[in-house]
Write a protein that binds this DNA or RNA. Structure first.
Lengths: 337, 337
DNA sequence: CCGCCGGGTGGGAGCGCTCCCGCCGGTTGA
DNA sequence: TCAACCGGCGGGAGCGCTCCCACCCGGCGG
């Protein structure tokens, strides 16, 4: 019983000469406290340097004021780090306003990913933000069953039921390819992203859409599947050039793949943009540093993070409905096109 | 009392026909349980899909099995994201092994930084990992007073008392400058990092050391202070060229500043490496993508994160002493030198 | 003058867990 | 034979908080 350790609400109550309940009320901003009592409690808190124990609070309220951000590490390793960094910044900014903690969970492999559901079920978080969901990912479903509010970055497919915030992938891709066609490019190839993800499929759909719009037939020979990695971009560029040596433009579904494509083009002494125009997607820091600087589609990643956090908090704090938001993208023209 | 909600340890005990304590023992891997009882408990856990409530556990053990990683956002915004991403990967890998949660705290401004001490004092974390500490940062001291185990990424100064993991900044810088001098460069300038940080000072010391070693006088005119940003690198390069137009090499204390320097050199039509050799520090992704690819000093950032996490866990779990570790760096020669 | 109301207050109970301590019954050594 | 011991086990207490439910008391209407 030494006054040692940290002061508790009881210590504060004794010091202020009031009951525990009154202290609790002051802390939680209840109106039903006389000005006098409130002042005494506040003074006691300051004197004792008291900080409420949020674990104890969490036990009774069964809220933790923490949300998890789940990121598959395999993808983050692939150099898309700027994406995650920006997303985290956005999320964190909104959470800070409401004193909500951000728990970062990097998931290394499928096993850890499935295990996560159990971890998360230990009630350590009020909700989950999920990044990079594949079409047949089971995790979102598991979280839903657990009744844990979940917001996705990107959707699993066009019929997504859960809350999500996505960029306008199809629209951005269409704009990119339209830009190439309008500049007179005749054979606009595309290096797609992973096609088991909606991002990959939607950006490919955008490439098709722009062709349709322009009344140009979309040649299946000009499509090569990538995987969002630099090496994948390089490889895809290689097979495209072999299949369609006369292509004069390529739309890569990510900046990183565009970088790979640029490398392959340089290796073959194709000039960019003179011989072949290149456009990426994301507008990461990379895009400004390639040679030549990369034309690309900017997605508002930080805003995406902010929106995700807001939607999640609205659900956990105010029981709001799940919302689905698509954020606009914007073509940034640089020197590669 | 409806069987609703989540099963508790009591539910499991009833189902298995044992006491709460026995269930607890099984969960925590105690030896003092008969094989029979253990089997029954395990079965009950599985049937009920029971997951222990870690908040309740935390209340009694006063451990949360979570640690905070504190990152000043101002710096992370500066494009050093690859550094933080790698650090997080390392930290996360080690934490995952011990089922410890990672709480990420981006600190936007000084105010939030000081407030953090209070937040952290709500007992939500067992320890803190601190990144980018400036020489006169008050936060480490506050955490120490709170008795919260802390490990720094980098040290405040050469007399650091807290646990830390740092790269061999001086050694790496010396190797970089030695390399330039050995290749016959006569005027090796340096763009320093922020000089209120040990990283900045140590890398500058390395530049001096290599000169001393080679018996070449270190010309103060060849030193220009930067701030680890690209723009800072550009600016520093500009003043260096004005002050010392005949310099034939520059060692930048970060890749990002090297990128700025490269841009300025190109603007002035100085060829790299023919006219001026450039070396950076960090070996971030950027380094492979500059034109020409950047010679730089690789620091084992992921390993740094792993080591930090290990040291922190050793302290929180086993009451180990604070350790101070310096990890070796390695010169990576590419085409800019 | 009495009942009633309602703002301000405090104590009890209980959140789900761990840990202390004591109980039980079988084995061992003197 | 009996005390000492020990492995296996369970209940009580309590971690620090919130919330329910009184309780008190001054003011007011009947």
């Amino acid at each position: 019983m030494a006054g040692n350790g940290h002061p508790t609400i009881k210590t504060v109550a004794a010091r202020a000469g009031v009951g525990r309940t009154t202290v609790s009320r002051v802390i939680n901003g209840s109106e039903l406290v006389s000005a006098d009592a409130r002042a005494r409690v506040l003074a006691a808190i300051k004197e004792l340097n008291y900080v409420p124990n949020s674990v104890a609070r969490g036990l009774v309220t069964s809220r933790t004021d923490a949300v998890a951000l789940v990121i598959p590490e395999s993808e983050s390793r692939l150099g898309s780090e700027p994406f995650f960094a920006a997303l985290i910044r956005g999320v964190s900014a909104v959470l800070a306003e409401t004193r909500t903690q951000l728990q970062l969970t990097l998931v290394r492999d499928r096993f850890e990913r499935e295990q996560l559901a159990a971890t998360v079920a230990t009630r350590r978080v009020d909700g989950v933000l999920l990044v990079s969901v594949h079409a047949h990912d089971r995790l979102p479903g598991m979280l839903e069953e657990l009744g844990l509010p979940t917001v996705l970055a990107g959707r699993r497919d066009a019929r997504e039921r859960l809350a999500y915030v996505d960029s306008d992938n199809a629209g951005g891709a269409t704009a990119a390819v339209r830009h190439l066609l309008e500049r007179g490019r005749r054979q606009v190839a595309t290096i797609t992203g992973a096609l088991d993800m909606d991002v990959g499929r939607s950006r490919l759909a955008g490439w098709r859409g722009a062709h349709r719009e322009a009344g140009v037939p979309a040649d299946g020979n000009l499509v090569e599947a990538g995987d969002f990695t630099e090496e994948g971009g390089r490889r895809a560029m290689r097979s495209l050039l072999e299949r369609a040596p006369h292509l004069d433009a390529v739309f890569a579904a990510s900046d990183l793949m565009a970088v790979g494509a640029l490398a392959e083009l340089r290796r073959r002494n194709r000039r960019v943009p003179d011989d072949v125009a290149v456009v990426g997607f994301e507008d990461s820091v990379l895009a400004r540093h390639t040679d030549p600087p990369l034309t690309t589609v900017r997605q508002p990643v930080e805003e995406q993070g902010r929106t995700m956090a807001r939607i999640l908090l609205d659900i956990t704090r105010h029981g709001a409905e799940r919302r689905q938001v698509t954020l606009p993208t914007e073509l940034v023209v640089r020197e590669s096109s």
